[in-house]
Nucleic acid binder design. Structure first.
Lengths: 197, 197
DNA sequence: TCGGTGACGACAGGTTCTGTCGTCACTATC
DNA sequence: GATAGTGACGACAGAACCTGTCGTCACCGA
């Protein structure tokens, strides 16, 4: 047979991406993916925990973020720390063509969206833990991560929509927009130390 | 047989919750749930799309939020609109005992967490659409929803942790905390019209 | 030369979920 | 009342996902 060709994992990823694009996610079976990669269904499950995971391999983004957080000077606020870390995103971003093909597949399939969301949730918890280790209060850290994630989401949306965009510039623009939106919430209960006129 | 007992859906929910608590989510089969409810496996899938959905029925929260948004005066900012709507949460919140049992089951099972996340994501999109219909810019609406969701998450966490808590009070406290965290993000790039001293 | 290790195929089996069809209770209408 | 329509249900078959287990083959170090 076709054993020992090497890079079995990569062959499976490539076969899966192609088949998902050709005939849709739920109309392709794991057996088909394995067959195209010259492997058996059983071997697929040795490399990936389940059918969806073949589209979600790799934790480089989280690792980059954690390393970048470590590089931020101690004493920096939680949200500024995150925004500084997010600036490294372009270093690990795949080419736009790949991102778009993958995004189209995920957007069309609820099971894949579930996996995407749980990965994002895991990233949020990882970042929260990192901030907590740096001395931030747990609830404040989680709040900062959630707000930071909102900024990052908007930044990526704008980045994918604009071929020529500069990531760092979009990031600070989105942060500014977030500030505008957030400041709007002051009226109901005035912030301490900010007496009404 | 036990046909026509009535309230088949409710019997299935009760049986599922009990079995999940007794022996765990993945050690209970759909056939077992159906059997305890005096039904067949096939009937389970007539009431619920899949095994997980039995824990996630009901959209009262989203409906309440949408109605509350409609009641907010036109011209109100996106985030204040959301925070005002969130104040109706206690009206549809189940008893703490139920929430805790359910939360324990979900916390112990990744597949259920995925379903929880996708329901939250659906709620976010629903709220974003509602704000957009009210004339808000789409990106700004999404930003407000994400920030609002962060506030709501923190509020609910505090609410469940404190038996005597008043929801409205916790909500405005969390909003204030969010403002504190967000304002911290100003330094990197000064907001327009806010010259540095 | 030989034993250990890792990748793989082959096979069996459990569980989830869907399609299809026939049955039975309820209801409306004549 | 007889009749037809509708909805809930059971029974059966089957595809796809995922796991456990075992034997085989290539590679690597002693």
């Amino acid at each position: 047979m076709a054993r020992w060709e090497g890079n079995a994992r990569g062959r499976l990823e490539r076969a899966a991406l192609d088949l998902f694009t050709e005939q849709g996610y739920d109309r392709t079976t794991v057996a088909q993916i394995a067959q195209r990669a010259n492997l058996t269904e059983r071997s697929f499950y040795r490399w990936f925990a389940d059918k969806r995971e073949v589209l979600f391999a790799g934790d480089e983004l989280a690792e980059k973020f954690l390393a970048a957080i470590d590089a931020v000077p101690a004493g920096t606020g939680a949200l500024p720390t995150l925004l500084a870390a997010f600036a490294v995103t372009p270093q690990v971003l795949r080419p736009r063509a790949y991102l778009c093909e993958r995004a189209a597949i995920i957007a069309a399939n609820p099971p894949l969206q579930e996996r995407e969301l749980i990965k994002q949730a895991w990233l949020s918890e990882t970042l929260t833990a990192a901030l907590t280790r740096r001395g931030h209060d747990r609830q404040a850290a989680r709040l900062a991560v959630d707000v930071g994630a909102a900024v990052l989401r908007l930044t990526i949306e704008r980045y994918l929509a604009d071929e020529q965009a500069d990531f760092a510039r979009l990031l600070s623009q989105s942060a500014a927009d977030m500030l505008t939106v957030a400041a709007d919430a002051a009226p109901p209960h005035p912030a301490p130390g900010k007496p009404q006129h």
